[in-house]
Structures are given as structure tokens and as C-alpha cells.
Design a protein around this nucleic acid. Structure first.
Lengths: 194, 194
DNA sequence: ACTATTATAGACGACTGGTCTATTATCACT
DNA sequence: AGTGATAATAGACCAGTCGTCTATAATAGT
């Protein structure tokens, strides 16, 4: 890979700032200063701020997919261990950021769903893909008899992801990993426990 | 009393708009136009926008407490029924708003925790009080032998509230009550089921 | 070497944000 | 009623917003 394109730099810096401060609280000037790209270039690469925001969501989706596949994609481990690794992996990432920022997709779901239909559609489909990845994992666990047969993998995955996002939200307030640890324990002890 | 209402009107309209669009996306002009209060008056009643925002959080706290006590405060019903009523009550409110807006406290937790320490402290304590109300209810249920003895009411309440907030967040994207219904079912079938 | 295209540069405008000072209306009390 | 204090309003103010525009520089294709 050669050097990063200007467009990619804008997206990367924009993603970082939007993750930290939210979409509306982040100005184009902030982003362009951070990316050391002049304002005039921005409108060469993007139609407007919304168009740019949608590209940032794609960036988040890729980052989350990459991060998730480290744990959920490791088929040398049993499915429930993959799910535990998934949670532990993200917990470690959040800890490294001092429990700030939270989930970029979750943040945009909250902030933008009622403000912008295009955002809502896009974050919704990213969220659905995250749930599918977990559902796939649960399905494998069920095939091996590791979790109860009466659990619907799709529904259960959806619930677990929602719990997890709720825990992340709470984490942003208390600034420690207790909500994440609690979520993991409750899910494994009471939902996935045979 | 007349002076009180002007201030109260600003808070009420501000709370409505901030609930709908978020704190940063809501301008003072929007609020003051809606409240039919001239712009100059605002800084007579509030020190600045942050000071105003904190007052709006208090307003939300009161509204949520009032709404919660309808269900959780009705001691003629068994505790688990109170919790079910609590969920059903909020589900009905959300349905009436076409599943927009979500939880005003949850929204501000997401949006403001990393932007403003005073907001973080205040929404955090409101959130804690919500969890305590549920914990109290679970404790009653435990005393009656309605839920397993090994459940810690405080921790369990925290988990349930986080799940619920995660479900609300998801609701805002899918625009139906499925995440709320799923949350209720999973909590009652797998966490509180003896 | 000479156009076309791609990309950079940043001034500029129309508008909105929150904030503040000056001014007017209202009230309590002699 | 007249006076002083307080309640409330009016609107100026400027920094900052997104977005547009024209001018310039670098690169590619013939």
C-alpha cells in the first residue's frame, strides 16, 4: 500500500473527532485542521457534511468488522470462547481510551437517528451486521450443544448486542469497566448457561 | 408565580426540543422561539446554556420519577408485576411518540458525558436513582421468594436498566417496539425466572 | 510540449451560535 | 404618587458554522 490518500486522511481524522465529540459538535474546520487539509479540498472529495458523515460510518463499520473478526473469526476456539474474547477485546480497547468515546455506531444511532434518515439507515444496517456476526457465533454454539436449544440465535444475539451497547453507554458515565463486566457475567451466567 | 412560568416555559420547551434533537443540535433561538420568549430574557433566567441544560436534566429527572412511580410505586401489585408495568408503561409512551426521541437521560449520557463534566455528574446521578428504584423493586421480589436468592438486587437492577437503555437505543433505529419487547421477555424468562 | 484533468489553496458570504450591555417595565414601600 | 430596586426585554455583538467560489498547482495523456 502506498501513502494514504487525502480523502482517507480526512475520513480518519474525522472519524476520530466524531467518535470523541459527536457529529454535530464536530466542525469541518476541526477535522480539516487535524488532517492538515485545506478547506477547499474537502468539497472536492465530499458533496457536503452529510455525505462525509456517511463515509465515516463506512469507516467505522470496517474498523468494527476487523476488530470483531479477531475474536469471532478465530475458528480454532469454541464459539462461546469467541464471544467472551469479543467482549474482552472491546473491553481492553475501551480501557485503553480511559472509557471515553464508547461505540461509534451506538453514538451515531443515538445522536442522528431522529435527525437524518440517511444516517439512520446506514447505522441501522451496520448494527444489523454486528448482530448477525454474534448470531452466527451462537448458532455454532448451539450446534455443538453448548447453549440451550430453545434459544433463537438471532433474537438472542440482538438482545446481547443491545445489552452490550447499554453497558457501553453506562461505562461512559461511570468511567470504568464495571458495566461491561456485569454485562458479560449476566449474559454468560443467565442467558447462555445451559 | 408569573416569573416562575416564564422560566418553566423555557425549560419545558427546551426539554422537548433537546429530547428530540439533542443538546448540541438545539439552538437557543429554537427554544426561545418555541417558548415565545425574547432572546434577551434567556440570560436573565439562566447563567448560560450549560446552566440551562442542567436545569433541563432536573426536569427530566422529575418527569421520569413521576412516570416510574405510577408503576413501581403501586404497592398493591406484586413487585415483578410492577416491573413489568414499568416496562409496558414506557413502551406505551415510546409508541405514542412513534419510537422517536428515546430516553432523554440516555441520550444526554451518550452525547454529553465526554463533553461536559457537570452534565456527566448530573445524568450519572439521575441514572443511579433510576437503578435504585428498580433494585428496590427486585429486593421486594426477593423477600417474597419471587426471584432467585442468589441474585444481587443492585447489580441485577443495574444490568436490567442498561439492557433497557440499549433496547431503547435500538428502538430509535428500527422504529418499532421489538427491542423493548425482546428485552422484557429475556429479562423475565432468563434473569428473573426462578 | 500542450491541453485536460485532478487536486490544492484559502478568501469570502450568508447565517447562526451563545453572550452581554443598555434600556424599559413592574413592583414594594414611604 | 413618587422613588428606588428589581424583573424583564431588546437587540447589538463577534466568533464560529457550513458551504461556495475563483485562482493556482500538480499530474496525465496525447
Amino acid at each position: 500500500m502506498g501513502k494514504e490518500t487525502t480523502r482517507a486522511t480526512i475520513i480518519r481524522e474525522g472519524a476520530r473527532l466524531i467518535h470523541k465529540k459527536g457529529f454535530n459538535a464536530t466542525g469541518l474546520s476541526d477535522i480539516l485542521t487535524a488532517a492538515r487539509v485545506p478547506k477547499g479540498s474537502f468539497y472536492f472529495y465530499f458533496k457536503n457534511k452529510q455525505d462525509f458523515g456517511l463515509a465515516v460510518i463506512d469507516h467505522y463499520a470496517e474498523a468494527i468488522a476487523a476488530m470483531s473478526s479477531i475474536s469471532l473469526g478465530d475458528n480454532n476456539r469454541p464459539p462461546l470462547q469467541k464471544l467472551a474474547d469479543f467482549m474482552d477485546g472491546f473491553t481492553a480497547v475501551f480501557a485503553k481510551m480511559d472509557f471515553t468515546c464508547g461505540c461509534p455506531i451506538g453514538n451515531l444511532m443515538q445522536e442522528m437517528s431522529d435527525l437524518n434518515e440517511a444516517f439512520r439507515d446506514k447505522v441501522g444496517s451496520v448494527y444489523a451486521r454486528m448482530a448477525e456476526a454474534i448470531a452466527q457465533c451462537l448458532s455454532e454454539a448451539q450446534d455443538r450443544g453448548d447453549i440451550p436449544v430453545d434459544l433463537d440465535p438471532t433474537q438472542t444475539a440482538q438482545f446481547i448486542l443491545n445489552c452490550w451497547e447499554g453497558a457501553i453507554m453506562h461505562m461512559k458515565v461511570v468511567k470504568n469497566d464495571a458495566p461491561l463486566a456485569l454485562c458479560k457475567r449476566m449474559v454468560f451466567d443467565h442467558i447462555l448457561n445451559k
